[in-house]
Design a protein around this nucleic acid. Structure first.
Length: 342
DNA sequence: GGATGTTTACGATGGG
DNA sequence: CCCATCGTAAACATCC
């Protein structure tokens, strides 16, 4: 049983896989999304083991981010300069791990790609890495999402334009609205009865003794919407501010846990807790190959098209997206995915 | 130029 | 033993 040691864990390799560690970092953030550098920081702050050989593990971590479908990339807005994108957890990545074990998932989370990805179809794999076969501009039509307020540890170039432009707000709202309607999101609220357990819930990571501590979960989306001036159900908005009271408790300078809320390895256990009502990444939008669209037949072509267009540059498309989404409550969201035991 | 992101490859390990 | 997952290395591209 992978159990962190008691006194020597500071030097030992934490019993968590990179996927776990990354997810912890993301979950710990207020916005449920972090830039790569902050993920690094989180891990290094909490796990002394990772203060060395940074080149090695960071490469592995990046590999995991790109390779695993459970992580989704959220681009910065044009007016939010900085390096790299934000990374969030895929809404459906829950339950990847066997309870208790974070070294090995029981299944690999994979986004369903209806696209019959032909073997060797696209550029025989660009042997030698990143891609002779790739188009010059990898993300020409990415949706740029807002980042309402930087997470406690301000992201690179902490210039926060707030609601810089109404244009951005429109884009954000459209995106948020669209995402908010995704089946996955609505299902989180009811997942309580289905026994869904987030893999990074404290009960999974540490034990099951903290169950009683858990209360309702927050939806970053709500805070985002609120920040944008959109009406947010009080239930949600209230939760947003109360669910993560522990964020920032960590002495980020010393990296020393300062309260019993921290479990082994200094992981803020409460912050990692995931109550039945799931808390998911704010506006998760897979930037990965658009083909990630499930059952294309069930998705209005418009939705697909709109998702590939930057709403900021095309408010019309954005609104259409929203409209489309609302008109098709049955339609599967673009994030629909499944746990595939390939 | 360094950080970030993508992809391929391969060995180790664990589960069935 | 087979297969899936994980960790690592490395090549390469893109972005800031």
């Amino acid at each position: 049983m992978p159990r962190p040691g008691k006194s020597s864990y500071s030097d030992q390799k934490p019993p968590y896989s990179y996927i776990s560690l990354t997810a912890m970092a993301i979950q710990h953030s207020a916005e449920k999304m972090l830039p790569l550098s902050d993920i690094y920081k989180f891990i290094m702050d909490r796990f002394p083991y990772y203060r060395e050989h940074t080149q090695r593990w960071q490469n592995s971590l990046r590999h995991n981010l790109s390779f695993n479908d459970c992580f989704i990339k959220i681009p910065r807005r044009p007016d939010q300069p900085g390096k790299g994108s934000f990374w969030a957890l895929h809404p459906d990545c829950g339950d990847m791990f066997e309870n208790g074990s974070f070294l090995r998932r029981r299944k690999r989370f994979k986004v369903l790609r209806p696209e019959h990805h032909l073997p060797g179809g696209n550029g025989g794999g660009g042997a030698g890495g990143g891609g002779p076969g790739k188009p010059p501009a990898p993300t020409p039509h990415m949706v740029h999402y807002f980042h309402p307020h930087p997470p406690p540890p301000p992201p690179p170039s902490g210039k926060v334009p707030g609601l810089a432009s109404s244009e951005a707000a429109v884009a954000a709202a459209a995106a948020a609205a669209a995402v908010g309607r995704l089946p996955q999101f609505s299902s989180y609220g009811s997942s309580q009865s289905s026994g869904f357990k987030h893999p990074f819930a404290i009960e999974n990571i540490i034990g099951r003794d903290y169950r009683g501590v858990l209360q309702a979960g927050g939806l970053p989306l709500a805070s985002v919407m609120h920040h944008l001036g959109y009406p947010v159900p009080s239930q949600l908005s209230g939760v947003v501010s109360s669910v993560w009271p522990h964020v920032g408790v960590m002495d980020s300078v010393a990296g020393v846990p300062v309260s019993p809320d921290y479990g082994p390895f200094g992981v803020p256990v409460k912050a990692l807790c995931h109550p039945p009502a799931q808390t998911m990444p704010a506006v998760p939008v897979p930037i990965k190959p658009a083909p990630a669209m499930p059952a294309a037949s069930a998705i209005p072509a418009l939705t697909v098209a709109a998702s590939q267009i930057c709403p900021a540059a095309s408010p019309v498309a954005a609104s259409l997206l929203e409209q489309s989404a609302s008109n098709n409550p049955e339609s599967k969201g673009s994030l629909h995915s499944v746990l595939v035991h390939s």
